[in-house]
Simulated scan of single mutants.
Amino acid sequence: MGTLRLLHRWAGGLIGLFLAVLGLSGALLVHKDDFLRATLPHAADPQVQDTAAVAAAVERIFSAPDRPRSIVLASERLGLHRLNYAQGEASAYADQSGRIVTRWSSKWERPEVWLFDLHHHLLAGDVGKTAAGIMAVVGLGFVVTGVILWWPARRLFALRPWPANLTRNGVVRQHRDLGVVTAPLLFVSMLTGVMMTLPAVEDVLLAPFSRPSVMAAAQKPPTAKGGPLSPNIDYGALIATARAKHPDAELRIISLPAKPGGLISLRVRQQAEWLPNGRTMFWFDPADGRLVASRDALAQPLGVRIANAEYPIHAAKVGGLAYRLVMTASGLTLALLGSLAVWTFWAGPKTQKRKRPRRAPAAA
């Protein structure tokens, strides 16, 4: 037990601050849509899913001289389209008629964008993403070892949102008891984070449900080549094709080919899908709008369907306000536990040993 306690303490002292950053940024990102609704015009507009209206907005956006590479369509909680351009970090928000509301060329110009990059990539691209995943693995170890270390002292349990005092003993007791209460939430947050950032770990965890080779094959895009992008593409017809197959599906993302020979993709979300942008796909030839291939997310192998649930669980995209508040509490708890662990390890006051009173000398 002493060795386990030492490992738990040293690991917390070394990476606790990074976990605190992940926890705090995650708690803030849960409320990203609320922030945008409060700060941008038309962000609180009701979602429009009428085929003609969406097609008109898409046509207006893609016919602009600086057309974007893709459009993430407005959702139930955010009444703006997100436009992503091929040049660097350039993006924009547009209202549901296709008019630009605001645009930016660097992530530093939008707080929700750099905060997302901080949480998912630690501002370091793919290397940061892998590092965040490794830290989440260590975080899972903290949850498990923390519960083990709590058990012998369970009779002293006292739930406190803040330590009774900032001595090492006070912080450790609060850390131990708050950690065990939030352990299930932290475990879910860490596990889904690991699965999203470390594909090899995800394959191992999902192997009992579907073989990795089967999952990889099921998610491959079509191999067919498309012609050059026609200026006369009827986006309404593309949307109508998808709607004919899935009448109740929510239109989510439409993307133009990234390179010659690529296809136009249309992504929709069926009502039974948890993923906010869905994984039900349609691919069209950009030369004439002909349907080339489609994929039903609900018919995918079980392992793929479980993988598609990782992000909505991690980011509180299901469960409404109640679950968003629960995951907010999880992120804030991680931020508190991680930051106090680092502070007490490196700079906090030491535990004061109680001095025994000296006995008076015996009378002669």
Score class of each variant (00 low, 15 high):
343 W>Y: 15
349 P>C: 02
294 S>M: 01
302 L>A: 14
25 S>F: 10
218 A>C: 02
282 F>V: 05
222 P>V: 05
301 P>N: 10
305 R>I: 01
314 H>L: 00
250 E>V: 05
35 F>R: 08
214 V>E: 12
317 K>Q: 09
90 A>R: 15
4 L>V: 08
307 A>Q: 11
125 G>D: 08
359 R>Y: 07
45 D>Y: 03
229 L>C: 07
75 S>V: 11
225 K>I: 13
266 L>H: 00
206 L>H: 09
68 P>G: 03
7 L>N: 07
282 F>P: 12
164 A>H: 02
319 G>Q: 03
81 H>C: 06
246 H>Q: 13
231 P>C: 00
100 I>M: 10
210 S>N: 11
264 I>L: 04
16 G>F: 00
205 L>Q: 01
145 T>H: 04
67 R>Y: 15
46 P>D: 13
97 S>Y: 11
241 T>C: 04
115 L>F: 08
59 E>C: 10
42 H>R: 13
318 V>F: 00
13 G>S: 01
291 L>K: 06
107 K>L: 13
52 A>R: 15
337 L>T: 03
138 V>Q: 02
283 W>L: 01
175 H>R: 09
175 H>K: 06
88 G>Y: 14
72 V>A: 15
179 G>A: 02
84 N>L: 12
261 G>S: 04
271 Q>C: 11
162 W>F: 11
96 Q>N: 03
288 D>T: 01
108 W>F: 06
241 T>K: 08
231 P>V: 02
328 T>N: 09
121 H>K: 07
233 I>N: 05
29 L>H: 05
225 K>Y: 11
239 I>K: 03
120 H>C: 11
203 D>W: 09
214 V>H: 06
290 R>P: 06
239 I>W: 05
113 V>Y: 13
16 G>W: 01
146 G>Y: 10
347 A>S: 13
359 R>G: 10
198 L>R: 01
320 G>E: 08
113 V>K: 14
99 R>P: 11
134 I>T: 10
78 L>Q: 09
39 T>D: 14
226 G>E: 07
155 R>P: 12
323 Y>V: 00
